[in-house]
Amino acid sequence: MSGVVPFGARLAAAMDEHGPLCVGIDPHASLLQAWGLRDDVDGLREFSLRVVDALGGRVAAFKPQAAFFERHGSRGLAVLEEVIAAARTAGPAGPGGAGTLTIVDAKRGDIGSTMGAYADAFLADGSPLAGDALTVSPYLGFGSLAPAVELAAATGRGLFVLCLTSNKEGFEVQHARTEVSGQAGPDGVPGGTVAALMAARAAVLNAGAEPMGSVGLVVGATIGDAVAATGTDLVAVNGPLLAPGVGAQGAGERELATTFGDARRNVLASSSRGVLAAGPDPDALVRAARTAAQEAKTALRS
């Protein structure tokens, strides 16, 4: 990927062209059944590639959820590899490259050589599991992500770091205060809540990047005032904000203004079932994606 445009710049261009919508590829057993497909590897492949064929070149990004492929074992992972390869060439040439950007939603996080191995699997040039970006978990300490941060930067890929999630258990860790609250740590980043610390770390990595950096955060659109309550500065992050729960999923203009404030332009709304439920007819999928993209654009860029 030598000389490639950084992920943040490519994503910003794709969001401007297609709207701020990421379509999740989440092959739930119930969705496979609704599409008239079996809950097996053949059904998984048919479902996933139909989504790519219908929406490639029409949305800013795809987000295949790795768990729904892993549940089918090694053959399921082979389908995930097919999906990533298909997205790379799906549709007309897009901003900064061909096809449609892919965010692999694997939420990997570990330490040392194990994190390095995850980085090699999902971020290294030549790896069949490497899309354009990867979701990662920082809850072994943000520094544990160093192998992923370094390899993503070297290959022009991106990361989305879990920060403020919409599950009710998330506050137990994300809202907790660090021992150095109110003081700067050894790297100059001030303490505070864990969520605020994660955002501050991302901001350091994205400093000076235009139009935005390549290290983003996952921030649920339905978390209410959690951003303010935790003192998390999303504007300073200067990176993409992957947000489940926009539009028909529960968050409208008022909720988004509360959650994201002046950072709304960097929000990439994520929709999976809201779009996928319209299938298997490809025209219906396209209409659902266009509607979701327009709803997101209205809510986020008004």
Rank of each mutant, 00 (worst) to 15 (best):
F68V: 07
D132Q: 13
A54I: 10
V136S: 09
A277M: 13
F47Y: 15
T102G: 05
I223E: 01
S127I: 06
V235W: 04
P20V: 08
E255Y: 01
A117D: 11
A200W: 00
K63S: 11
T222A: 08
L129Y: 15
K63N: 09
V218A: 09
T165N: 11
Y118T: 10
R50C: 09
W35I: 01
G76W: 02
L77M: 15
V79Y: 03
S166M: 13
K107H: 12
V227I: 14
P240S: 07
T135W: 02
L77E: 12
A296V: 07
S127V: 05
V194A: 09
A277Q: 15
A236E: 10
N167T: 08
V237R: 01
G43Q: 10
A200N: 02
R108S: 09
A60H: 05
A93K: 01
A154T: 09
V219N: 01
E82N: 05
P186A: 15
A14T: 11
D262P: 14
D26G: 05
G185K: 02
L256G: 00
P240C: 11
P282I: 06
A292E: 10
R301W: 15
E295P: 00
A86Q: 14
G191H: 10
V23C: 14
A60M: 12
K297N: 15
A243N: 08
A119T: 01
S137L: 12
V161Q: 02
N206A: 12
A9S: 15
G261V: 07
D120E: 14
A29D: 15
H72W: 04
A251C: 05
P138I: 04
L151R: 15
A119H: 02
S272M: 01
T291D: 14
P190M: 03
D53R: 14
G99V: 06
N167I: 03
G109N: 07
N167M: 12
A85R: 13
L21I: 14
L159R: 06
L31E: 03
V23R: 06
T258D: 07
P280S: 09
A60K: 04
S270F: 11
E255N: 03
G261T: 10
A90M: 08
L44D: 06
A221I: 03
L300P: 01
A277E: 15
S127A: 10
L241D: 00
L11V: 09
